[in-house]
Amino acid sequence: MEDLSFNLLNQAESTDEYCKIHPNQKLVRVGNKHEPFCTLCVKEQRERNLNDLVLKGVLSNYHRGFRDVFRKDSIVDDEDLWQASFDNYEVNDGTEAETNLKKARQIAGKYLNRDYEANTIITGSPGVGKSHLAISMLKGVNDHIKPNASCLFVSINELMRLIKDSFNHSDSQFTESRMVNFLGQVNLLVLDDLGSEASFKRETREASEYVQQVLFGVLNKRNRTIITTNLNSDELSKIYNPKLLSRMYKGVMKNDGIIKFKETQDKRMAIF
């Protein structure tokens, strides 16, 4: 790719594609020889005192499709989840699980509309298929949303482990600031297993101040998040502060965004 001067940005034309870092920012194109790019990304890198040559790197990074963000950047602690889909979510006719499967499909359809801004809460006992449904919803949106958009699945326990590990590794890509900014910007995010990070503490079930700080930083930037949890609203209120809870519940009640398991049994326990 030949060098591209910042002066040529004046000739840029808007496209129908969106930036994976700034989801509401359309990509632009200069001529037919260059890949579309985000002017905000260019501006941010220039403001970090990088020279004009960095623009070539910004442009080349856009060859990676939005759909690849899901597979390459998700933080999954159970590799079996990659095989999960709506089609292999096993239910019996007339059961609560069948009703919840239908509702999950319907809500996923709503997220195909980029203007739909509401969180979704999937709650119930461990092993009922909450994560299975959440990643199936994410896959459906990732595969069918037009124009393409970035979708991400994140295990909260694994996220916090990686962030804390970055304290001792200055070159880590999982620093708090980077992860809060990245997760805050993707088009649709799944935060998996909310509340379990507090249940591992022996002295109290209250989530640590640091965990709440990270989650607040992410959710405060967002309006489209799917959250799975083993806890009900009363239990969540004992673990998290009200400001964080208000971010979790954005648009949930107004848009009937709760998928609740009350009767379904733990599928993983039925082994003998």
Rank of each mutant, 00 (worst) to 15 (best):
I75T: 05
C38D: 00
S125F: 06
S14K: 14
R205M: 12
A149R: 15
Q265L: 14
A84L: 02
D266Q: 09
A198Q: 08
Q83A: 14
H22K: 05
K262F: 01
E98T: 02
T15Y: 14
D16M: 05
N223K: 14
M248F: 12
K243F: 08
S170G: 07
L53V: 09
H144A: 13
L101G: 02
V141L: 01
N181P: 03
S60Y: 05
D80F: 08
F86E: 03
Y210R: 09
N113M: 06
Y240F: 15
L215R: 04
A108D: 01
T204P: 02
L4A: 07
S5M: 05
D256L: 07
D115T: 12
H144V: 07
F272M: 02
D78H: 10
V76Y: 01
R205Y: 05
L245Y: 05
Q213W: 04
L101N: 09
V218K: 01
L4Q: 03
S150E: 11
I145W: 00
M137K: 00
T95R: 07
K26T: 14
F153T: 03
E98V: 04
K254G: 04
V186R: 00
D80E: 15
L55M: 15
S131Y: 13
K139G: 06
N223R: 15
S74W: 02
D234S: 14
H132Q: 12
I121Q: 03
V91P: 01
N100K: 09
R105C: 03
G140E: 15
D80V: 10
G217T: 08
T264K: 05
Y240M: 06
N113Q: 05
N24D: 11
I239N: 01
T225P: 02
H132N: 03
V91I: 10
R46N: 07
V154W: 10
S172W: 07
Q45V: 13
E17T: 12
K267M: 07
R105N: 05
L81E: 11
N51M: 04
E263K: 15
K243L: 10
E90T: 12
K139M: 07
H22V: 10
N157A: 11
K243M: 06
E203C: 02
C19G: 11
C19Y: 13
F86S: 06
L81K: 06
N148D: 15
V42D: 10
H34T: 05
S172A: 11
V28Y: 15
C38A: 04
N119I: 00
I163K: 08
L40E: 13
H169P: 00
D192F: 08
N61D: 07
D171Q: 13
R268V: 00
D192V: 12
I21N: 11
S233G: 01
Q185G: 12
K103V: 12
S196P: 00
L133T: 05
R247C: 12
A12Y: 09
S246G: 08
S196C: 06
I271L: 01
M160Q: 13
V218A: 02
P126A: 13
H22G: 03
L4M: 14
V54Y: 07
L27M: 11
T225G: 00
H169A: 13
E206H: 04
D234H: 14
K139Q: 15
E2C: 03
I135Y: 11
V76N: 10
N88V: 01
S237F: 00
V141I: 14
N157P: 04
V218F: 09
L159I: 02
E2W: 08
E263R: 12
K243I: 06
P126L: 08
A108M: 04
T120K: 09
M248R: 09
